Computed example of a mutant assay.
Amino acid sequence: MKKLLITSFVLGSLAAGSAFAAGPAGGTDLSGFSIGTNAEFSRGTVSANDGSSDGGATTSAGINARYDWSLTPTFAVGLGASYSTGNHAFGSYANGTAATVNNRYSLDIVPTVALSNNYQLYGKLSSIYGTAASTDGVATSNVQGVGYGIGVRKMLDKNLYVQAGYDLNKFNDITYSNGTTAALQENVYSIGIGYKF
């Protein structure tokens, strides 16, 4: 999946570079601050050395913000942050306790390519964080990991936009006090709206 995301972004970048070598008509400026909100549809999975192997689905809301710096008329790099509300379900551990991650947030590096005046293709590399429920159903543990994403943003005018994206979040293995080690992974599909200043 990681190779597919990278390949898709590279091909999009090359296509945009050749199609808009002089920059999109109208001189779209990719630089600036943007903030948005989105609906997220995620599917999480858990596997652990106690025999756990399960999955769960979650619908949640998220917010995101970033600042982009244009390096060329058709390419920019952004730094951002995002936060997702609620408990994200990853199924259940072998003992029946729900496997969840709460307060998931990330710090993001976001390269963006202008495909036209109105459409932008972006990739995302994230450092992700959250709070995982322990296998005892009471304690929690901090988790972190890496996320990879790709998406499309459509400008409705010079400020307002809609976007859709896909993220693969892989948390580092976590070992609980009872000796259980768990691996958590999440596929996230999102649609949203935002404003570029």
Rank of each mutant, 00 (worst) to 15 (best):
R153H: 12
F90Y: 15
Y148T: 01
T37A: 10
G165C: 03
S13R: 03
S42A: 12
L4S: 06
G96S: 09
I150T: 02
G78L: 11
A98R: 03
M155Y: 13
S13G: 14
L184V: 01
S126V: 00
W69V: 15
T28E: 06
Y176A: 01
L5Q: 05
T100Y: 12
I63R: 12
R104S: 15
A19M: 08
N49D: 11
N159L: 09
A16D: 05
Q144W: 00
S106L: 09
G96V: 09
R66M: 14
N178S: 07
T112G: 00
G165R: 02
E186K: 09
G147F: 01
S134P: 14
S190R: 05
S53F: 04
Y67G: 04
R104P: 11
Y67A: 08
Y148P: 09
G165H: 01
A183V: 02
G86E: 11
N64Q: 13
N159I: 14
G151Q: 10
N159F: 10
I193N: 02
T37Q: 08
D108M: 15
G17Q: 08
S31I: 13
Q144K: 10
A39V: 15
A57Y: 14
T74A: 07
F41E: 02
N169Y: 11
A21D: 08
N38S: 05
V110N: 05
A15S: 11
I6S: 05
A57M: 14
A81Y: 07
G80C: 03
L4A: 12
I150R: 15
P111F: 10
T59A: 03
T58M: 13
N87Q: 08
S53A: 12
V110R: 08
N103H: 13
S141P: 11
S116K: 08
G17M: 12
N64E: 11
Y122E: 02
A65D: 10
G147P: 07
L79W: 04
A183I: 01
Y122M: 04
Y166D: 08
F90A: 06
R153A: 03
A19P: 06
A22H: 03
Q120W: 08
Y93D: 05
T180L: 07
S70I: 00
K170S: 12
S106I: 00
F9I: 03
V113W: 15
M155Q: 07
T72N: 14
M1L: 12
T180A: 06
D29L: 06
T135R: 10
I174E: 04
G80A: 02
P24E: 08
Y189A: 10
L156P: 14
G179M: 01
A81I: 13
D136L: 08
T97F: 00
S13M: 13
N159R: 13
K2C: 04
Y83F: 13
L107N: 09
K124A: 02
G179P: 07
Y119L: 13
G86T: 06
